[in-house]
């Protein structure tokens, strides 16, 4: 499972303008709706439901919201860099400015976990997060996200 299998260049947002956790999730749901053709409301509800179980703000300004949707045909990822960090109830109480949304089909099972693990591992790298924060264009971010795995694979 590699990042490249999860995300396309069009699924990268360089400067997302939101002011709250709810708004951030809403905006991501809207983008995901464009990408998958599913209803925005449904996606948002799934994400919100997951946040109720426990925050996906994993600390260091990172959030990995995720959820399962029965109608999906494959895994979908969206990356967003926020223009201004928002409070996300993260485990370290730090506001979030990097988000990786991951949506999985109901039947994904092990693949869902693998993809989450891969994203979590990627964003644990402080070096990469620093570079991502310095990027201004979606293309540069996409390149960064996907280039890293070449070095991982090597």
């Amino acid at each position: 499972m590699e990042i490249m299998d999860l995300i396309t260049p069009t699924a990268v947002i360089a400067n997302m303008r939101v002011t709250s956790k709810k708004q951030a999730l809403q905006e991501l749901a809207r983008r995901a709706s464009d990408l998958t053709g599913l209803e925005e409301r449904q996606i948002f509800d799934v994400l919100l439901e997951r946040e109720r179980l426990g925050t996906t703000g994993v600390g260091n300004g990172i959030a990995i919201p995720h959820g399962k949707l029965p109608q999906l045909d494959r895994l979908y990822g969206i990356f967003a860099k926020l223009e201004k960090p928002v409070d996300f109830d993260s485990i370290d109480e730090q506001p979030v400015d990097l988000m990786f949304l991951l949506l999985a089909p109901e039947s994904a099972g092990a693949d869902h976990l693998k993809a989450l693990a891969r994203v979590s591992r990627l964003l644990r790298d402080r070096n990469i997060c620093g570079k991502l924060r310095g990027c201004d264009s979606a293309d540069a971010i996409y390149a960064l996200l996907t280039e890293t795995q070449a070095s991982h694979a090597a």
């Binding site: 179980l53 426990g54 925050t55 994993v58 990995i64 485990i91 989450l116 979590s120």
Partner: peptide
């Protein structure tokens, strides 16, 4: 990687 309240039901997780 992710954090949960210990009082959540195992079934949901």
């Amino acid at each position: 990687d992710f954090v949960f309240d210990g009082a959540k039901k195992m079934g949901v997780l």
